[in-house]
Nucleic acid binder design. Sequence first.
DNA 1: TAGAAACCATCGTTTTTTTCGATATAATAA
DNA 2: TTATTATATCGAAAAAAACGATGGTTTCTA
Lengths: 298, 298
Amino acid sequence: MEIRNFITFKKIIETGSFTRASESLGYAQSTITAHIQAIEEALGGQVFDRIGRQIILTELGRQLEKQVDRLLHTYQAIESLSGYGQMPKGTIRIGTEESIALYMLGPLFKAYSTQYPDVEIVLINAAYRELEPKLYTGEVDIIFIIDKAIESPELNVQVLSQVDMVFVATPDYLQKRDAQSERISRIINTRKGGTFRDIFEEYLTSRGTKFENSVEAWSLELVKQSVIHGMGVTFLPKMTVESEIQAGLLVADSLSLGFENEILAQMAYHKDRYISSALQAFIDMASDSAVYKTNEDA
Amino acid sequence: MEIRNFITFKKIIETGSFTRASESLGYAQSTITAHIQAIEEALGGQVFDRIGRQIILTELGRQLEKQVDRLLHTYQAIESLSGYGQMPKGTIRIGTEESIALYMLGPLFKAYSTQYPDVEIVLINAAYRELEPKLYTGEVDIIFIIDKAIESPELNVQVLSQVDMVFVATPDYLQKRDAQSERISRIINTRKGGTFRDIFEEYLTSRGTKFENSVEAWSLELVKQSVIHGMGVTFLPKMTVESEIQAGLLVADSLSLGFENEILAQMAYHKDRYISSALQAFIDMASDSAVYKTNEDA
DNA sequence: TAGAAACCATCGTTTTTTTCGATATAATAA
DNA sequence: TTATTATATCGAAAAAAACGATGGTTTCTA
């Protein structure tokens, strides 16, 4: 049982088959069989049930997977070590929400991977409420989010910029809203747990505004398209809809939210965990990057 | 970089030399060199400084060691997994104080390793106050201690028996004590942090008894020998001095401590960590073993 | 229900990696 | 200086890993 066996094991679980794992890893299919046989022999039991043409983890396999996750995670950390004066390398796992990934981190990723070609960037996409726990379990190394200020004694938090949030609809829709006064019929928004939705609902509730069942869209692009096609209204960082506003497809309404200045783009990472040189370089570059300056700098 | 490289790396640190590591692991010395070269090549830097004929960890090496400890620990956990109906195997790491190891666990170890020859038992010797944290870090799987009842919501604690604590001195010494009333001149005891010393000092302080600087002895045998040679008095579980009392070398004085029935032999392990079948078998055997029954059973 | 397709296991062969042992080289210690 | 105690190097031998062709099942599909 060496590390390569565990990598194969994990890949089989991800892909769901020996064959796909072999393609993904660049091995012959027979090699995959051999890898798993080695594990099963060492452990004295099967880790997969071969039911017909599908495979399922056995109880032993599930126990093994937990440990393998730990082991491979540590192995990644080892690979990310690099000697003094060496080029950073290895892997950094970044947790973000879609909007930040697209509109703020894009240029950063490009600059970083140009300067540090030996570092692999893995993006983990999830809502903020799901991301923070991942920092504690070590599932991600660093997170980028748009929300009110993060308060946690265990995290290093750095504010990257303020974020202008706007209420967005088609020109048509906005007129209707004026007619119906405070009656908003449909909110298009990202999935539950997504930052913008939570902030928006909080705002509406505080204003006592009623709203019908909101429509859930899974991606930022889907949200925008839904709004453009007149299905409702939404609430997003201004930067994500600037091109649509310019094109006249959408109209932004800067509502008085009462917390305009409190919505921040922030990055956070764990205080006590080891910071690889690759991660440190990324943090430094993110701090320095003037993609979106704070008001103080402007 | 495979697991064998990391095992070699760790062994070199333990033994302090490539050559001794090769002997310990059953490799040729040149193989050890190759293992380390593989790591150094992958990491892009040296992990050992070769200063003359001695080797020292570099900064990179120290960083690596931390991760390797984690990795090998997880690897041990994987090796300890075994399929349904399989013989338990792998490694269990038991933290104890010397007295328990010698007087209570001896027969248990023997019975266990007869029944489960494929399980390696690693004994970690430390004082109770050092042992409990090791349960949380996972440095040990289970601890056996003699102390007042452990209270921790994160641990499963099981009482194995009550322990009779006695005050022990040579016959001579005890007479002197009677003459000098409550004046006790020297306490021989185990190192600071050791259970018995803490309990004893607590008792003496509560009684307002004065005592001079106590002598610190590192092992149970050393404590006993010191007392036998008239250097002072001590405080130990009765079972550890029974043979000396029979031989007339020592006299036990069952002081009224006020908490005679509160000193317990206990085992404790972490509630949430995975319990391998090897560890489960050990826990079961320890529970069942009638080496020292509780009063209820007697 | 026959045939094709998808999938994992087996096995002999080839390729790669690991290990070894002999020897070289360097730094103490006597 | 010389003996001793280290690690490094290198070619050969041994072991292990990977491959590819093949075979046996199960599961679609026509």
